[in-house]
Design a protein around this nucleic acid. Structure first.
Lengths: 367, 367
DNA sequence: CTGAAAGCGCTAACAT
DNA sequence: ATGTTAGCGCTTTCAG
């Protein structure tokens, strides 16, 4: 078995005398983890040689030594301690990811894709959420720093960007979803403005006389500003009147003006509601339906984001699908390329979203 | 990237004497991370003393020494390396979490709660997903082991339970959602059977003549077996005929028999469909709606899980809300208690789910 | 081809 | 009250 002579870690396996079953975890012997020392000893070589083996430098090693080590490792199930390696190499193999909220489908989706993409490289993800709170984000950053993550992937409102900007000097930092163009960093985002414009144009073309835009307060958040800008551009180019409503999620009262407006707009002909993200619509939707106005005519409904219930809603929801998988993969790729600093001209990756037209905005029947 | 040989790490201990602005790092000087050595030197004490300071052993230290160290730390922004501490203490402060799928609301929700709950203790989460695949899960476990996580939280089908059982001898292992009663481990689950029975009884009481149960293949998965058992118990006690349909998510054809059955059942009076989890219903729901049978009369719809679209669906969905936050918190608590081995009689924590009756099953109008 | 030795940053006896 | 010293498990010169 293992060959641990390491000073008898446990002298008292006596621990479980009373137990009737005697299922005593097979002699609770607190198996002391096998180290490179143990392997070296068992193989009758020095730890240096084992280390060489571990790092694939077989050329400087006789075939038998190699095989002997291989056998011992297989027998003992030895796995090098990543902690020790990390201390030595100053690399942990851990990627830190801080997102606004793990409950947001976008975050989860990007994290999944990222996790998947870096796994083959032996990298693991450490995740934390900021809840959009500067202090919490700061704590998460501290934690990441202390855990010595090799790189950082953040979705942030930017409240700690000064700190992050510092970090770019030490390790790769990637902003996703919301970019800031921080020097030394990298942004991975979608084309919020264009996609938003496209959706608005679609609504106009369908013949909706009003498109009521519903957003959370901008607070300087890029995605929000861009989506709004796209909406406004489309309004200008089509002659639609720009009608913007601000809501706060979790505060039902803030939705009232929207409902009021929708109701009143009806007298003018068909109108559409366009929400700046799926979570807003999730709160707004039930209220909208309670107005008892038929969708899509005279009421159209569309949103940025592709909620998982887009096809559950009846009629199915027109929405903007963000390229979350591609974003996760792009982040992973950037991470792998991070050894040689990113070229200045490739510091911002924009991956297009996709407009998915469904029945909830089909005013015009194809004719 | 970043590989500075330290040889004169400090050289400018006095650096920033008067301070003033001089926000140095302008000079992209690849700030080499400050270590306990640097602090000791700057404070004119030994690293032992600094270590004592870090660990709050102020009693064995003069007030001025303490203050001096405090000042140096503040100035340098020093933070002890968790990697070094980990190597020494054999504890990383990282909790490994392996879930079936980060896309499942249940997983995310539990992870969020857990993450939140352990944060105050300075613990971080490392997450991975298995996709229900033994090999992937195994790889994730290997990764966790190499990263030397302090504890493991898993949602698993059980394919690597032998390995996990071994681990319980070395560190705390908690199974959640799906328990297995592994010796040495701990299960944190909900009362699937009872909740399922309760939901079925509710449907029977509403007057549905048939309750069609839709599940994925059991494959030995506790939650699935228990939910089915609850359904069957309720059937027996009410005289309902047990009608079970198996589907595979992502395989539309497998849903056809369900739709067929629902259609035919209609001739018999009102019938309800009860899906074993929210993801099944997410796939089934649109198809069900296409049958064009009115909900809740004559067609009732209910599901285990509380999808985020439960209130979006019209009529709102009757469902079983799993106590995900409580589960996350329970896991965290168990983790904190894990120093002294869990008492034998507390190895399984069952947190009740909550039946949320909504309009989708309101056959009987309150009268 | 192989090994001895010097650390990586930190903690904890064991002095003093 | 403070310092010396010996590692934690691994990688990497530098010498054979």
């Amino acid at each position: 078995m293992v060959d641990h002579d390491r000073i008898r870690t446990d002298e008292a396996p006596s621990g479980n005398p009373g137990g009737g079953k005697e299922t005593v975890n097979q002699v609770t012997e607190r198996r002391t983890k096998v180290t490179i020392q143990d392997v070296a000893r068992a193989a009758g070589v020095s730890i240096t040689t084992v280390s060489r083996y571990l790092n694939g430098r077989f050329s400087s090693m006789s075939a038998e030594t190699r095989d002997r080590i291989a056998r011992v490792i297989a027998e003992t199930g030895y796995q090098p301690s990543r902690v020790a390696q990390a201390l030595k190499a100053n690399r942990t193999g851990i990627i830190g990811a801080i997102v606004v909220n793990l409950g947001y489908p976008l975050c989860v989706s990007v994290i999944r894709a990222l996790s998947e993409a870096v796994e083959p490289y032996g990298l693991q993800l450490m995740v934390a959420e900021s809840r959009g709170d500067a202090e919490r984000e700061r704590r998460a950053l501290d934690a990441m720093r202390r855990q010595a993550v090799d790189a950082l992937v953040v979705q942030t409102d930017g409240m700690n960007n000064a700190l992050l900007a510092e970090w770019t000097k030490e390790k790769p930092v990637i902003w996703f979803d919301r970019g800031f163009g921080i020097a030394g960093g990298m942004d991975v985002v979608t084309n919020n403005l264009e996609a938003s414009r496209e959706l608005t144009l679609h609504l106009a073309q369908q013949g909706y006389r009003h498109v009521v835009y519903v957003s959370e307060p901008l607070r300087g958040i890029e995605t929000r500003m861009d989506r709004l800008a796209g909406y406004e551009q489309a309004c200008r180019s089509t002659g639609l009147r720009s009608e913007i409503h601000w809501v706060h999620r979790g505060q039902p009262a803030t939705y009232e003006p929207v409902l009021e407006r929708v109701r009143s707009a009806m007298s003018d002909g068909p109108a559409a509601v366009y929400t700046a993200n799926g979570l807003i619509l999730q709160e707004l939707y039930p209220r909208l339906r309670r107005l008892d106005i038929t969708v899509p005519d005279p009421l159209g409904i569309a949103t940025f984001d592709q909620p998982d219930w887009a096809d559950i809603a009846t009629p199915a929801l027109t929405c903007v699908r963000q390229p979350t998988e591609a974003m996760g993969q792009a982040i992973a790729r950037a991470l792998m390329d991070a050894d040689e600093a990113w070229p200045e001209n490739a510091r911002r990756i924009v991956i297009p979203s996709e407009l998915r037209v469904s029945a909830s905005t089909s005013l015009r029947n194809p004719d």
